[in-house]
Amino acid sequence: MPAVEMVGVTKTYRRRGGQPFRALDSLDMTVDTGGVHGLLGPNGSGKTTSIRALLGLVRPDAGVGQIRLLDRPVPDELPQLIGDVGALVETPLFFPAFSGRRNLELLAQTAGVPGTRVEECLELVDLRDRAGDRFKGYSLGMKQRLGIAAALLKSPRLLILDEPSNGLDPAGIRDIRELVRRLGRDGRTTVLVSSHLLAEIQHVCDSVTILVRGRRIASGPVASVLSRAGTNDTRVAVPDPATAAALLAAAGFSVSPSPDGQILVHGAASPGEITRVLAQHGHYVEELVRVTPDLEEAFLALTGNQA
């Protein structure tokens, strides 16, 4: 039984005065139970919208698509299943004048979660020391962590985190990734985590769905999907690109011109080899960088521009 299932879901936003905008375009998504599943896509690709649709916050266009969470239809059976789903969508929403602890306690009380669990979750996100302070005084990272703690309160079977490392410092990001990975391995929690960062998905996820412009363009185990998305290009800048390119091609590299008139070397295992070949022929490298592609570009490359 998949933990999340979305078939052909379309969502059109009607903006005041503007053109209607299709944020989800017949989106399919399947998340198998257990482990960490990534929802990867550039900004504006519809990650948040699809999560909102999963939680019944936005209504997909009438008459199309279907959504199931934990094998129950959404939104009809949300009240029955919500006790097993914890979520953090975009920014944490808490009452600014209440302490972090009170905010959690109020939520816990609505669902009959024991008070001890509040402390456990505060501990889990390392907020125990500051739990008595007002939410409005928290740093961005602390707010985000409190949001995660709230999502964990129910000991959910399905945990949905929308860009959880947004606004966190590197140490905070590492902590969150660690937490997500461990939750995914505990045998009872399925984590769905969205991100616009390829590296983040690579680090924490077992499987991934890639979203571009509201459509799924790839999905499957992270290793196999991302090997196609990540590029292995190296950009080489030299005073005489034409000659250098010919030299490299002769040495067995796959070469093409880069958009800025320099050279792109594809699939070079070691950049040092490039430098060596060029230096032997009196060409000195001015700049040599691994190209990290713009995510959307990479996706488009990956899918042969079908998106």
Binding site: L57, L78, P79, I82, P92, L93, L107, T110, A151
Partner: peptide
Amino acid sequence: VALLFWVPS
């Protein structure tokens, strides 16, 4: 809105 994650009705 956060409350709706707990009480979806």
